[in-house]
């Protein structure tokens, strides 16, 4: 092959490499959630259910058998309740689950993390939770009408110190 043709061929090969790498480094574009039409609601919370069972008094006699540092007056159970969560969007139930506490002794918090992609615009949200297996009905409920902008996120979180469910934008 002529020397010139060789160099030309090499130039073509490098140009192809550049085109291939250059193109796929950014293209084709990918749309995760279309910001013009959709927004996202996330149900995301961590909550420790009520402790199950009553504390038991430990008598003087029994206490003496423990080492001095461990002579507590009461023996309290550590197990916590499951939490029950329901989430309704525009009157339709989209999520309903009983979530066990974490931890080997079932003494940790229960976690929820769920994503709902919804059309942008006005929505009715209703979220309810029971955190005590001994009661019925819901201990916390929040109903709200919200207007969601496209491409924005709304977090439904739970903060007992702020009175229960909170909506974070």
């Amino acid at each position: 092959m002529k020397q010139f043709a060789k160099y030309l061929g090499q130039a073509v090969a490098y140009a192809l490499l550049m085109a291939f790498v250059g193109y796929f480094a950014t293209s084709p574009g990918y749309t995760y959630v279309d910001p013009r039409e959709k927004s996202v609601v996330k149900l995301s919370l961590a909550h420790a259910g009520k402790i199950i069972g009553e504390c038991r008094e430990i008598s003087e006699q029994q206490r003496k058998r423990f080492p001095p540092g461990a002579r507590i007056p009461q023996d309290c159970p550590r197990e916590r309740s499951d939490i029950t969560i329901e989430f309704n969007l525009d009157g339709k139930q989209v999520f309903s689950k009983v979530i066990p506490p974490t931890g080997l002794s079932r003494d940790g918090a229960a976690y929820v993390y769920e994503t709902f992609v919804v059309p942008a615009g006005e929505h009715q949200l209703e979220v309810s939770m029971r955190d005590d297996v001994r009661t019925s009905g819901f201990d916390y409920v929040r109903k709200e009408t919200v207007t969601l902008e496209g491409g924005r996120m709304l977090i439904v979180d739970f903060m007992p110190e702020r009175g229960g469910f909170v909506l974070v934008r």
Partner: peptide, 21 residues
């Protein structure tokens, strides 16, 4: 090589220029 908009956790990632490699 350029960046997208700065991350904004209140926004949902929308149209992305993915590096497919």
């Amino acid at each position: 090589a350029v960046s997208h908009e700065v991350a904004d956790l209140a926004a949902v990632p929308g149209e992305l220029s993915l590096d497919w490699f």
